[in-house]
Simulated assay, not measured.
Amino acid sequence: MPNNSLSLDNYLPFRLSVASNAVSTLISSAYDSLYALAIPEWRLIWVLNEDGPSTQREMVQRTGMDKVTVSRAAHSLAKRRLVTRSPHEHDGRSHHLILTPEGQRLFNDVAPSAGEFERQVLEGLTETETALLKDVLRRIETAAIERRRHLEL
Results as ranks from 00 to 15, higher is better:
3 N>T: 09
3 N>G: 04
3 N>C: 06
3 N>W: 05
4 N>E: 10
5 S>C: 03
6 L>K: 06
6 L>D: 12
7 S>N: 09
7 S>D: 15
8 L>P: 02
9 D>A: 02
11 Y>H: 09
12 L>P: 08
14 F>M: 05
15 R>G: 00
15 R>I: 12
17 S>T: 06
18 V>I: 08
19 A>P: 05
19 A>T: 09
20 S>F: 13
24 S>Y: 06
24 S>A: 12
25 T>Y: 07
25 T>S: 10
26 L>T: 05
27 I>E: 00
27 I>K: 00
30 A>G: 01
33 S>R: 03
33 S>E: 07
34 L>C: 11
34 L>D: 01
35 Y>G: 07
36 A>M: 06
36 A>C: 10
36 A>R: 02
37 L>F: 13
38 A>Q: 10
38 A>D: 01
39 I>S: 04
39 I>A: 08
40 P>F: 04
40 P>Q: 04
41 E>D: 00
41 E>G: 12
42 W>A: 13
47 V>M: 12
50 E>Y: 12
51 D>A: 15
52 G>L: 14
55 T>A: 11
56 Q>C: 05
56 Q>A: 13
57 R>K: 15
60 V>N: 14
65 M>I: 03
67 K>Y: 11
69 T>R: 15
69 T>I: 03
71 S>T: 12
77 L>H: 00
80 R>H: 12
81 R>G: 14
82 L>Y: 06
83 V>Y: 01
85 R>G: 09
87 P>E: 05
88 H>E: 04
89 E>Q: 05
91 D>R: 13
93 R>K: 11
94 S>R: 13
95 H>K: 10
97 L>A: 00
98 I>G: 00
98 I>Q: 11
100 T>S: 11
101 P>L: 02
101 P>Q: 02
101 P>I: 03
103 G>D: 01
105 R>V: 12
106 L>K: 00
106 L>G: 00
106 L>T: 02
107 F>S: 05
109 D>T: 07
109 D>R: 00
113 S>M: 14
115 G>P: 01
117 F>A: 04
117 F>Y: 10
118 E>T: 08
118 E>D: 00
120 Q>R: 04
121 V>I: 15
122 L>W: 03
123 E>T: 10
125 L>F: 13
127 E>L: 13
127 E>K: 09
128 T>E: 06
128 T>V: 12
130 T>C: 11
132 L>F: 10
133 L>S: 07
134 K>F: 12
134 K>V: 11
135 D>T: 13
138 R>F: 14
139 R>C: 09
140 I>R: 00
141 E>V: 15
142 T>W: 03
144 A>L: 13
144 A>S: 09
145 I>P: 07
145 I>C: 06
146 E>M: 10
148 R>W: 09
148 R>M: 06
148 R>K: 14
149 R>M: 08
151 L>V: 03
152 E>G: 05
153 L>E: 09
